[in-house]
């Protein structure tokens, strides 16, 4: 995310949009609403990916769109001292995800159950698997164990954890996005991580190789 640090810098022409800070885009959109689309172009992918990771792609298509509509409608309440709009947008998206807690929980549970089925199935057949397949399966299993662990977190802890891990927000940004004190973010994050490690540890299913997993996504 490269953004010009110039807070409140007013470009002379609309064509200079690319180097505007988010705050100045929002401020200009107060009078010229069309300008708000710049924020969409900047962050639609980020928000979509975040929501997709939490609720799946179908929900993400819809909620991402809704995030920007809500943001647009609330743009006059944007704190212009905040150069970057990402935390704000993530906060709106997270609130929307919050309306689908059950969907999220169901999805995480389903993913984690799939893991245990796969493991059981493999053992039951008792057939030796090829190494590559085994490796892929173990990575998948790890991901699914993680899903189970995430499902076990209290929703407010999960919000904080995933904003940090997937949204890339720091403590202050997470606090701002959720409208909670930084200290609360810190403690929730600490607890969430501890619980996550605990539940993954107890299941003893996360291979040490997980951090080395190659990922080919952007």
């Amino acid at each position: 995310m490269t953004l010009s640090p110039g807070v409140g810098a007013w470009p002379d022409a609309g064509d200079d949009r690319a180097c505007d800070s988010d705050a100045s885009v929002v401020e200009r959109s107060w009078e010229t609403p069309d300008v708000f689309a710049v924020l969409f172009d900047r962050y639609a992918d980020d928000i979509h990916r975040y929501v997709a990771r939490r609720l799946g792609v179908d929900a993400a298509d819809d909620l991402m769109a809704e995030t920007f509509v809500i943001a647009f409608q609330r743009r006059r309440r944007y704190d212009l001292t905040q150069t970057q709009a990402r935390p704000w947008l993530y906060g709106i998206a997270t609130n929307l995800v919050g309306r689908h807690r059950r969907v999220e929980a169901r999805r995480l549970r389903a993913l984690s159950r799939a893991a245990s089925f796969a493991a059981d199935g493999g053992n039951a057949e008792g057939e030796p698997m090829e190494d590559r397949v085994a490796e892929r399966d173990s990575a998948e299993r790890a991901a699914r164990v993680l899903a189970g662990a995430l499902a076990g977190l209290p929703a407010r802890h999960r919000d904080v954890l995933l904003l940090a891990a997937w949204g890339g927000l720091d403590y202050a940004e997470t606090a701002r996005s959720l409208g909670i004190p930084v200290g609360t973010v810190r403690s929730r994050l600490h607890r969430a991580r501890a619980q996550l490690r605990r539940s993954i540890g107890t299941q003893d299913a996360l291979p040490a190789a997980a951090p080395h997993k190659e990922h080919d996504h952007g």
Binding site: P33, V69, F72, R197
Partner: peptide, 29 residues
């Protein structure tokens, strides 16, 4: 914990979905 890499079944934003979302925003505007 492997959290940052965890993608589940997510795929990138499809062009059609992007266009629809952008249209929704423009409609609100």
């Amino acid at each position: 914990t492997g959290l940052p890499e965890w993608e589940a079944d997510s795929v990138p934003l499809a062009p059609r979905a992007r266009a629809a979302a952008r249209a929704r925003l423009l409609e609100a505007i």
